[in-house]
Design a binder for these strands. Sequence first.
DNA 1: AGGAATTTGTGCGTATGTATC
DNA 2: AGATACATACGCACAAATTCC
Lengths: 234, 234
Amino acid sequence: MNQPPGSLPVYLQIVELLVRDIAANRLIDGEKLPPEREMAAEMGIAVGTLRKALAELQSRGLLERVQGSGNYVRAISDPQSVYAMFRLELIGGGGLPTAEVLDIERLAKPSGLPDFGSSAEAHRIRRIRRLSGKPAALEEIWLDGSYVEAIDTNDLSESLYLYYRKRLGLWIVRAEDQVGLGKVPEWAPPVFGQPKGAPVPLVTRASQAQDGARAEVSLTWFDPEIARYVARLR
Amino acid sequence: MNQPPGSLPVYLQIVELLVRDIAANRLIDGEKLPPEREMAAEMGIAVGTLRKALAELQSRGLLERVQGSGNYVRAISDPQSVYAMFRLELIGGGGLPTAEVLDIERLAKPSGLPDFGSSAEAHRIRRIRRLSGKPAALEEIWLDGSYVEAIDTNDLSESLYLYYRKRLGLWIVRAEDQVGLGKVPEWAPPVFGQPKGAPVPLVTRASQAQDGARAEVSLTWFDPEIARYVARLR
DNA sequence: AGGAATTTGTGCGTATGTATC
DNA sequence: AGATACATACGCACAAATTCC
């Protein structure tokens, strides 16, 4: 199975294939997959390639692999659980999450957010988060304006919290999460997999700094398909 | 490099080797590793084996791998950040975390914990959490006694929250975390890498169920070395 | 109880693709 | 454009865990 240049690697194609099968309930929870060699032969690919795909699924929590026994689907079929159990950071389960800053603006605090900080203004940081290159969530972080006058995009290249600590002397010791449903925001870039206005899981977080002040508030909209993978961890 | 039976797989040995080098600052942040073929030849192993080790380091956030360029160390050298930035769930970044139940007992609620639930008793679940087989954290979860009379160890084999949802009709929609320092508990099994009484990062979490009630309180003690790897995520 | 068959895990070597320098 | 370096893919051999008879 050779591929035209520019297309997805074979092992990722297999991942997508199986993910769709699981999402569509063609592969149900607990189901045992055929032996790897058999599957590979059927798909016309090498065992090693299939194994790489299966390893990826395992890291997403969709599959349990037992030496000497087999590969078993582990997915929560009840879609309700998606909204109940996932947590923001658990998204790390699918690989190292990356954060790409879309834009930063200093604005008057909008109404509707929980109270935070002492300033009337705040920095709005919009980021797109990816898992293995695939857009997984959109983030809007509101950092109180009293900590710094302006934020440059380059400052955040590494890690937001690293920037907080190193540049602002600020770190988060407490956080409160609220899980719910939200609508895909207007400003969502076209890469995000959901149409604008569609309902998706939303986490609202109020973060408290080491001095006791509420320093920031963040909103995170998840691609529901991603949120599902995340759901079964823990 | 063949190995005596019972020893760690070669690729994990390499992981441990490099992790120690990074932790000890023999490999510093930003440093570029030699080419893979060269490293593999020097170590007397196959390139594929080395690559598996490097991929593991990448998934832990310790390494950045750039096609066509090289492998670069990415580690936070400042140990302070350990206590400032890690979060419980981020531990998922190093692979699928596993949870092994040590024991479960129904006890009178101890003082000193946040108020939760309606019963005077609670189930105390003690777990050890591992990353890639290595003990990473100890957990003590106190689930209010009103939800169920008794909990069997086998019930929790899969996932604690799966048990909550499937058996108890209970799920967590909100959680409040408190980050601080704690002492390694007396009951820590010998596998936990810190001497008893030593100060380690501690997360205290109060979890709120879908009906608004505080259903459980949990304490998590982290191996500080693990917490360090976790720190740079996000 | 025990051994054979099955199935996944590890490790090696090689060829080719693709991004970077 | 060429050289370098990582990414993908293939196939094979053996180890280790599980399952089955």
